[in-house]
Each structure stands twice: as structure tokens, then as C-alpha cells.
Write a protein that binds this DNA or RNA. Structure first.
Length: 558
RNA sequence: AGACCCAUGGUGUAAUUGGUAACACAGCAGAUUUUGGUUCUGUCGUUCUAGGUUCGAGUCCUAGUGGGUCUACCA
């Protein structure tokens, strides 16, 4: 029995308090409310995981609601991508997907209700005048000359707005609250604006559209959302959120703000992400370097790893910058359990095993995943000429205690095969190593080693005549600075990492199949690599997902 | 400038709600290893400052400092 008390984040504390008090009969109902005007990114992933998992934890439900109150920027095309991304992350929402636009009729009724209660009015001021009268952060606003129109006149004008009697921008409906409030959002916020524009779902039915503040909270309320989780910058909207609930006398959803997650080397501004795509820095929204869900999926980050990352990042109200290393840790942890191993040589140098019979081929049995016995074994052909990693040979190596790979007169084990010893180094005129001549020890065969030889190093290899060539796209972080958007004097694109993509050709085991795109392998001793959709039957393309931890390269630096 | 929010190791989050500051990642050292991976062990290091309340403060109060947010007919 554990006496360990589970620690709760501050939102869970609020929820448990609510449950204890029998609020909403103990129901927990959350929602994920993206605006369908772009692709989902890592920040959305955080919100998705939070909303769905916290509801799951307390036996509740979660809605997906597309917040589509601005016909100018929103599009059905984004809706499909959003749905796909959420499902890929492993979540399913209730009630089919919902839309704020489903409630346009109801919202209009609410507006009429407020007018009738003398709590809203039609303002004929220009946008400039409204901004002017709003005052300043430290200067109280002034009341609009239209603020005290009669209820009848307001009703008539609102009706006219709805019927399309007035041009765009000529009038707005505002709440009548307090022009002197220290909270700018309470200074008679705009509820409705006129936009003679077709909406992606309601078409030409409406020419007035509700603002965020008049749509979001009421949508929560209509859906019976108990806990409406949003990011910190909406803190100042909360009094307004609550004001509408009180005045409209509707279901009291509660807004709770948490700090959005920032991750090193990632940006989450839709506008900036768009620039990366449109200015050709990346190949698209799903470029494997992008912090979009589509990009991370293509990169090979498992959904389970992204979920785990979001959980580990935690929930709080303070500014944060999560180290990218944590994400990579989660990715490796997941892939270590699930990815089959395969040998691939990324930077090949040829090895000729001079005492191995020419023309002879042996099939070596190698385990697919030492972490998962059920993954079974595979056969890998071995022959007289093989490729090994250029890195795995050093002509003037440090003492064997430090470097235990191949060097002149040194021995290593070829994974799943024999121990070899290097006898000769062949170079071209420029001094570049072109071949290594080695001898092997026939009695050192893997699994039946009677040689008595002991070597510290084991390296991967691929038979030269059997090797298959594949394209490998090596990815590095998108930016050279962990917070590229934090420099006031510099555009974030100045920190674009020109080396964030390098395409190379690698030699891999011949049996590597043209599997389903997204299939991830561990290239032994190198990292995890994921089959890209660009692959064809005779041209496989792999994306580097994440490198293996590499304590050797760390030692080299020191 | 005003209002609101925030401040715990390098990073992120905890601390039985006032009772010996912990967990994970990162770092370092070692063991194991036919992946310099995985796994395991050890280790480094933390309460913004100054007052106050209290037997006792990371926690409560006051002030200061530092950071964030807010003045779109965007969400």
C-alpha cells in the first residue's frame, strides 16, 4: 500500500474541490476550441492533452469546438486537418465536432436580451472614434454619444444590422459596462460587427458576426462546459466572461487560465509559422522541422511521446521554456521500446576482409529489438567487402581505454558477425581513406564464438554488394537560437538554421522494405529514422527523427 | 503610467496547505552491455530581496526588485 500522495496541478485542485462540493453534480466537461485558420502546433498539443486527459481522469467528456466567428480568416480546409491531428494524437471528442457558428442564432437572441435589459447598445461611431474614446491603460475612457439610446431604438438598429441595412464598419453592438474600468476589456466591449461576407458554414445567412468575447464563453455555457481552460492572456477577459453569464443568466462555465508552453527552438506564432512556409524556408506545414503536429508526425515523433512530453512539462501559471531535450527524451523512450533495429551506414568507408573467401556470403541472424523479444530476428548477408561508418575508424586513435572502435592493429566486433582486425589503410592522393584492409577471425562468429578474443567495441556494417542505397534527410533544429522570437532588434528568420536539413545517401541492409510511411527504425548506434511519404518502391526516403544519446561525441568534445 | 498575474536547482514541476525542500530531464562519476543505445547505482545543485506574524515560513502579511499580460470591428 502506498502512502504516497498524488500531487495535483492547480487545475486538478480546483476540479477536485468542485467535485467535493458537488458542483455540477461532479461532472467535468472540457473543450478544445481551435480557430480553423491554421495548422495545429505543439502549443495546441499541450492544450489538447490537458483538456482531454483531465476530463478522462475525472470521468468526464471533451468537446471539439471550432471557434469560427470570423469569416474573413477561417476555412473548412483547416477543419479536416485539425480533426486528423487530434485523432492522431489519440483523442476522440464527444458529439461530433461542434462550431461556434452553430450558435449564431442563439447568440443573436442573447444580444437582443442584453439590449432589452438595457445592457447593450448600438454605436455608430467609427472604429477610430471608438478607439479614441476607449482611453488609455491609465486614462479612463469616455462614453460614446450613442451610449444612451432608447431600448426601442437599439432593438430597431440591431435588427437593421442583422438585416444588412448598413455597410461594414458603420455600426457595432456594444455592451454597456464601464468606460472607466481599469480593465480595458470592460470598457464597453464590442459584441457584434458588420461583415458582409460569406461564412464557411453559414454562407450568406449572416452579415453580422459575434466577437470572441461574445461567442466563446456563451458557447462554453451552451455546451455545458464546466471547466474552460485557456491560456494566461485571457485572464483579463474573465470578468467579462463572468459578466455575460451573470447578465444572461446562463449555465456558469468557469474559465481557468494556465501558462502556455514554450519550447526551446520552437515557435508557435501562426503568422511566423506561415512565413516559414510562404518564404520557402521549409517545404510546407508538415515539413519535419516544423513544430506543427503534422510536422512532428512526419518527423517520426510518436503520438505517445508527444503526450508524455506534454504531461511532463506540467501545468502552472508561470512563464516557462521547456528544454528540447525533454521532448527528445520522450521520443527516444517511446521508440526504444517500439522501433525495430536495422543497420545503416550513413557515411560509409569500405572494408575488405582479405582472408574471407571471395564470393562467399553468410546469412547472419540479428535480433530486431533487444527490448522486445517478440520482435524476432532477421537475416543479414555478410561478405568479403562491407561498409562501416567512417567515424568508427581512427588512424591515430587515443588509448584503447578511451576509444574502442577500429584503428590500425586494433580489433572490433562486427555486430552479429565476426571480430575483425585492421591491417592496412588505403588512401587516395589527397590522403582520404578509401579502404581498410582487415582480417577476420573465423572462430569468432557471433553466437558461437570460441576465439577467446575480447573486444570492447561493436560496430554496425552493411555488405557492400548487397547494400541498398536510400536517401536520408538529416534534420537539426530549425533555429540557431533557442528563442528566436525574443530578440526585439532582430527578425526571427535571422536565426534560421541553414544546416537544419542535409540530404545524404546511406547504405542499408538489403531487406529493408518499402513499408508504410511513418514506420520508424533505429539505425543501430545512430538514431531513429522514419520512412517519409516521398518514398517510392525503389527510392526510400528516411527522416532523421532523433539521434541516439551519444556519450562518445560528448567525450570527444572534452 | 495603471490594473491584473507570476517568482523554488541549469530546465520543468512538487512539497501532506504553516512542520526536515523532493521528483523528472540535463550534467558529472561508476556498473552492466555483441548498440559508447537501453538498464542500474551514486553524485552535483534550489526557495528573488528586505522587513513582519509565528515555537516554527517556500507557504501567511507589507514593501521592494524582476518577469509577464492588457489599450484589434482577431481569437
Amino acid at each position: 500500500m502506498s502512502t504516497e500522495r498524488e500531487s495535483l496541478n492547480f487545475i486538478e485542485e480546483i476540479i477536485e474541490e468542485d467535485i467535493k462540493n458537488g458542483k455540477h453534480g461532479g461532472l467535468v466537461y472540457t473543450r478544445f476550441p481551435p480557430e480553423p485558420n491554421g495548422y495545429l502546433h505543439i502549443g495546441h498539443a499541450k492544450a489538447i492533452v490537458l483538456n482531454f486527459e483531465i476530463a478522462q481522469k475525472y470521468g468526464g467528456k471533451t468537446n471539439l469546438r471550432l471557434d469560427d466567428t470570423n469569416p474573413t480568416t477561417e476555412d473548412t480546409h483547416f477543419v479536416e486537418n485539425i480533426k486528423q491531428d487530434i485523432q492522431w494524437l489519440g483523442f476522440q471528442w464527444e458529439n461530433g465536432e461542434l462550431y461556434a457558428s452553430d450558435y449564431f442564432g442563439k447568440l443573436y437572441e442573447y444580444a437582443v436580451d442584453l439590449v432589452k435589459k438595457g445592457l447593450a447598445y448600438v454605436d455608430d461611431s467609427t472604429p477610430e472614434e471608438i478607439a479614441e474614446m476607449k482611453g488609455d491603460i491609465s486614462v479612463p475612457g469616455t462614453e460614446s454619444p450613442y451610449r444612451n439610446r432608447s431600448i426601442e431604438e437599439n432593438l430597431e438598429l440591431l435588427e437593421g444590422m442583422k438585416n444588412g441595412d448598413y455597410p461594414d464598419g458603420s455600426r457595432v453592438l456594444r455592451a454597456k459596462i464601464d468606460m472607466a474600468s481599469p480593465n480595458m476589456h470592460m470598457r464597453d466591449p464590442i459584441l457584434y460587427r458588420i461583415k458582409h461576407e460569406d461564412h464557411h458554414r453559414t454562407g450568406g445567412e449572416w452579415c453580422i458576426y459575434p466577437m470572441y468575447d461574445f461567442a466563446h464563453g456563451q458557447s462554453d455555457s451552451i455546451e455545458g462546459i464546466t471547466h474552460s481552460l485557456c491560456s494566461l492572456e485571457f485572464r483579463h477577459h474573465r470578468p467579462l466572461y463572468d459578466w455575460f453569464i451573470e447578465k444572461l443568466e446562463i449555465f456558469p462555465s468557469r474559465q481557468i487560465e494556465f501558462a502556455r508552453m514554450n519550447v526551446e527552438y520552437m515557435i508557435t506564432s501562426k503568422r511566423k509559422l506561415k512565413r516559414l512556409v510562404e518564404e520557402g524556408f521549409v517545404t510546407g506545414w508538415d515539413d519535419p522541422r516544423m513544430p506543427t503536429i503534422a510536422g512532428m508526425r512526419r518527423r517520426g515523433y510518436p503520438a505517445a511521446a508527444i503526450r508524455e512530453f506534454c504531461r511532463r512539462a506540467g501545468i502552472a501559471k508561470r512563464e516557462n521554456l521547456i528544454e528540447i531535450g525533454l521532448l527528445e527524451y520522450c521520443v527516444r523512450q517511446e521508440l526504444n521500446k517500439t522501433a525495430d533495429r536495422v543497420m545503416a551506414v550513413l557515411d560509409p568507408v569500405k572494408v575488405v576482409i582479405t582472408n574471407y573467401p571471395e564470393g562467399q556470403v553468410e546469412e547472419m541472424e540479428v535480433e530486431n529489438n533487444p527490448e522486445d523479444e517478440s520482435a524476432g530476428n532477421r537475416m543479414v548477408p555478410f561478405s568479403r567487402e562491407i561498409y562501416i561508418e567512417r567515424d568508427d575508424f581512427m588512424e591515430n586513435p587515443p588509448p584503447p581505454k578511451k576509444f574502442y572502435r577500429l584503428g590500425p592493429d586494433r580489433m572490433v566486433r562486427l555486430k552479429g558477425a565476426y571480430i575483425i582486425e585492421c591491417n592496412d589503410v588505403v588512401k587516395d592522393e589527397s590522403g582520404k581513406i578509401t579502404e581498410l584492409h582487415c582480417t577476420y577471425f573465423p572462430e569468432s562468429r557471433s553466437g558461437s564464438d570460441t576465439s577467446g578474443l575480447k573486444v570492447k567495441g561493436t560496430i554496425h556494417w552493411v555488405s557492400a554488394e548487397h547494400a541498398k542505397e536510400v536517401e536520408v534527410r538529416m534534420y537539426d533544429r530549425l533555429f540557431t537560437d533557442p528563442t528566436p522570437t525574443s530578440h526585439e532588434d532582430k527578425d526571427f528568420l535571422e536565426f534560421f538554421n541553414e544546416d537544419s536539413l542535409k540530404k545524404i545517401t546511406a547504405k542499408v541492409e538489403p531487406a529493408l522494405p518499402h513499408a508504410e510511411p511513418g514506420t520508424t527504425y533505429q539505425f543501430l548506434r545512430k538514431g531513429y529514422f522514419c520512412l517519409d511519404p516521398d518514398s517510392t518502391e525503389d527510392h526510400l526516403v528516411f527522416n532523421s527523427t532523433v539521434n541516439l544519446r551519444d556519450t562518445w561525441s560528448k567525450m570527444k568534445k572534452n
